[in-house]
Design a protein around this nucleic acid. Structure first.
Ligand SMILES: NC(=O)c1ccc[n+]([C@@H]2O[C@H](COP(=O)([O-])OP(=O)(O)OC[C@H]3O[C@@H](n4cnc5c(N)ncnc54)[C@H](O)[C@@H]3O)[C@@H](O)[C@H]2O)c1
Ligand SMILES: NC(=O)c1ccc[n+]([C@@H]2O[C@H](COP(=O)([O-])OP(=O)(O)OC[C@H]3O[C@@H](n4cnc5c(N)ncnc54)[C@H](O)[C@@H]3O)[C@@H](O)[C@H]2O)c1
Lengths: 230, 230
DNA sequence: ACGTGCTTGTGAAAGCATGCACAAAGTGGG
DNA sequence: CCCACTTTGTGCATGCTTTCACAAGCACGT
């Protein structure tokens, strides 16, 4: 290469864009697996299920990595997005609550395509502590602080019942973990500077139900009479 | 009551609002469980982790269900939100792919607080078909159409590997299911009128990693020298 | 009956996000 | 070397979301 494109990073990628970058990354990896070397914004947008203008604007926030008239080089773009997302470094993950869900998560092989490593499993139940799940010993929750320190845990996953989630979150924060992924159906209270994301099955179902009902209501024939079941 | 508030529904609740209603609903149920009869927008907003002005505007889309100077009656508001979300009717759910995740979902008791019923489990693996999981027989995927019809399935959950997800989605659509919740890490292609929502662990982790990296970059002391690890 | 105090519901402003449409920039053929 | 063609990067218009700030409304005490 003769001269490197000198736009390092401009501080401030829109949140909506950040949320789509992983989707682009996955689409790119699929393309790479199929042997594709370059892709147009149109093509990649199709694979990612978004509008091509949106894709171009999103990518433009990372820099000018495309070639006009040609498109984007798949490998290079994978690298740039990975770097932007922080996937070029390793992240140590601890899962707390090794029940139905925690076990599924621990056993989930393709955990995060790259970069994420499950470093520890923790639980409070004496019957669960000591079990080996996915080649890891389940440790007691009391050793959370020690485990976080010794394994360099930077992301905490909470898969305990709702009632225990806030307590676990506080201990994570206390121990210095500033990224938390919460599967329990509660709103977690954490200090500024701690990033919590939630995955909530029940909310997703309710949103689906809302739209389904909306569709059924307006849908043509029935229910035109003012009757309602109350 | 002397005269009912005559605002039935005004067609068109903003999407952002719909996504928060389930959160409010859960907070209200928690309050109800604790014996609270009425709550102010400030109080409910606190419990739901949002700004109180936002909460009031959200609720105003459903109608005028508060009392000035007092707040909202918990029970009444629970009913109104439930009705709006479509939780006063029953929804039949089928889960396809009874592996690690599918089993956890099937065994998940507090499935959706209310309204959602797991009606069928389906898998392609002969070793899995016939098993009893969460008191349900796992049926073969070939009977999907028959199951959807006989059980009145209206929501399909996909928990198969990525490679099978599109096929399963298409069969759901073919069978008349118009609401799909997808756990597989692929973008599904469905016709207009079908509503797909996705839950994607790996995307959530990547977003956390992005913010964590961002925090580490700007964080005060280290890394002020132009060095970068590349 | 009326005033006081509290809380809702909502205009209006500001901030984000989306998508169009096109100039700018590159490729490749003649 | 130039021209025709393709595709990016982005200015701009539009629409959605959030937040502020306050008038309107209701309960309650006097
Ligand atoms: N299973 C699902 O499909 C599913 C779906 C959506 C949400 N969730 C949510 O995920 C969470 C876990 O669900 P599950 O089905 O795995 O429940 P589970 O009861 O099977 O497992 C919970 C585990 O957490 C452990 N635990 C409890 N308190 C703890 C504490 N203070 N510290 C450490 N560990 C503790 C328990 O010992 C148990 O092993 C719940 O909040 C549930 O609402 C589950
Ligand atoms: N386990 C997790 O924690 C987790 C987390 C995030 C995402 N996911 C995703 O969820 C999906 C399931 O994960 P898992 O860990 O349960 O995988 P798994 O391999 O344990 O289970 C997959 C199941 O799907 C069945 N299946 C395969 N093809 C099928 C088909 N065409 N029709 C019906 N059934 C079929 C298999 O027989 C198997 O039982 C995957 O796409 C995975 O990427 C899982």
């Amino acid at each position: 290469m003769t001269s490197r494109p000198p736009r390092p990073r401009e501080r401030g990628i829109p949140e909506a864009t950040v949320a789509r970058l992983p989707v682009y990354l996955r689409a790119l990896q699929a393309l790479q697996g199929r042997g594709t070397a370059t892709v147009s914004s149109e093509g990649l947008a199709g694979a990612a299920g978004v509008n091509s203008a949106k894709l171009r604007k999103d990518l433009s926030h990372l820099g000018s990595y495309g070639t006009r008239g040609v498109g984007y080089e798949v490998e290079y773009l994978i690298y740039q997005i990975s770097r932007e997302l922080g996937l070029t470094q390793d992240w140590s993950v601890a899962i707390v609550g090794i029940g139905n869900l925690g076990r599924a998560l621990a056993n989930y092989g393709g955990f995060g395509t790259r970069g994420f490593r499950i470093a520890a499993l923790l639980d409070a139940d004496p019957d669960v502590v000591g079990l080996t799940v996915a080649s890891l010993d389940v440790r007691h929750i009391d050793s959370l602080e020690e485990v976080v320190r010794s394994k360099g845990v930077s992301i905490g996953v909470i898969a305990t019942p709702a009632g225990s989630a806030q307590g676990v979150a506080s201990r994570f924060v206390e121990a210095g973990v500033t990224s938390i992924l919460n599967f329990a159906p509660v709103v977690l209270n954490v200090p500024d500077g701690v990033d919590v994301r939630k995955v909530d099955l029940s909310i997703e179902l309710q949103i689906l139900a809302f739209h389904a009902q909306r569709r059924a209501d307006g849908d043509g024939q029935a229910e035109r009479m003012g009757l309602e079941v109350t």
